[in-house]
Design a protein around this nucleic acid. Structure first.
Lengths: 220, 220
DNA sequence: AAACTATTCAATAACTTTATTGAATAGTTT
DNA sequence: AAACTATTCAATAAAGTTATTGAATAGTTT
């Protein structure tokens, strides 16, 4: 094998893996699976895809060895093969948000149109934690909370927030987080809380970002 | 805009940028541009592409805003738009090497077939530097060395190594580096040096990786 | 073993990407 | 202003990707 042939094959393989990520639905699936494992049916529902279609995309990811499967009863559960998959998604996400003005505009416009408030990054939250007390709430569905969450966070799924709001303190600031920067649950939570007179802010990133940084997490 | 529409557009944009990376030639171009700026002609030559073809790929990268151009005399020089582009490439590269056994096999097989020796990572080199003295040589073409190199490295392009070998110490270990893990110049250098009785090892990563880590660099 | 069910497969049509030409363009130099 | 030159554009054919069906499969439960 000569030098050119070697390069063609290495870059060919890398392009193959990159292509398996280069599709809107598959990127959305990756972000979902970063929360934990899900069945094909659940993945299809979360991403608004027909099941056969979701399955087809999952096959592509499986062939590229980006996801693993294991059977649980009648269901086949998919999960990310390892943390490097999330790292690559994160790098692409950050490249996109920084480079493509359209994405940042989409995100801010969408938020501003419905929710007029600011967010805090993980870094900002860590600083804030040094000086004062805050209450962190996880507004994802309970199953995702159970698979892993920020240490000491309280689980209040967005669907239950209105009824369970009274569990929260009126004085200390509340930080709501969900799946990641494009997840809207946290925005909805902040909107509900603010309207009821609470001090609330959304965390920009999601649980997988927190976890990747090696910050304290809990399970179950 | 509803939630689904918002997601479709955000992931759509991210897939668009990912697609612009998802091609063997464009990945190779990205890695080349991580060394500095190059004209279309130079890029075509380095990647063994017809010029019209290289230009076409560069248009794709430009449209995705991953590269910038500036004119220098008769030539148009392309360069990476910023360090996030290299970060994304690095994440994909690491995902590929770790996930796809084929890539690791390709790299080790190719090296073993021609060059039978080990390499050291940047981390390993930093540790080694604490205890003993090493000589670092940059075997890329001089133009790339001038655009940026590891602090205190000596420039000896691979094409001149045989004649200039005598400039190097026989006793201290020599570390050779080039563009990145898939660049073969450093392997060739180690082979030449070892044959002549020097103690030599290749650095696994390339200059852009060193630079991204915030380690000391020099220009010119 | 039969019934059931979640998932995958297969075929196809619409769409997108890529390589290959050769011509056109936008600069620079003379 | 003319000549030159590096780069881009345009057209086209071949190859690859995706959504949409409906049928097939591989398990599990009864």
């Amino acid at each position: 094998m000569n030098k050119r042939e070697f390069k063609d094959r290495v870059y060919g393989e890398l392009a193959r893996i990159t292509k398996s990520l280069a599709n809107p639905h598959r990127l959305e699936i990756i972000e979902l699976l970063a929360q934990g494992d899900f069945s094909v049916e659940q993945i299809a529902e979360q991403t608004s895809l027909p099941i056969a279609n979701a399955s087809q995309h999952l096959q592509v990811l499986k062939q590229a060895q980006l996801v693993d499967i294991n059977r649980q009863g009648n269901f086949i559960h998919y999960r990310l093969a390892n943390s490097n998959v999330f790292k690559a998604w994160k790098a692409l996400r950050e490249l996109g948000v920084e480079r493509i003005a359209t994405i940042e505009k989409l995100v801010t416009d969408f938020r501003q149109s419905k929710f007029k408030f600011e967010s805090v990054t993980i870094e900002g939250l860590l600083q804030r934690l040094e000086s004062r007390k805050v209450t962190i709430i996880d507004v994802r569905p309970t199953t995702e909370f159970n698979k892993g969450h920020i240490a000491n966070a309280i689980s209040i799924p967005i669907s239950e927030l209105k009824e369970r709001m009274t569990e929260l303190p009126k004085r200390t600031e509340i930080i709501a987080y969900c799946r990641g920067p494009f997840c809207v649950y946290a925005d909805e939570a902040v909107a509900i809380l603010k309207k009821a007179g609470y001090k609330a802010t959304r965390l920009e990133e999601g649980f997988p970002d927190w976890s990747l940084m090696g910050l304290p997490i809990e399970m179950n």
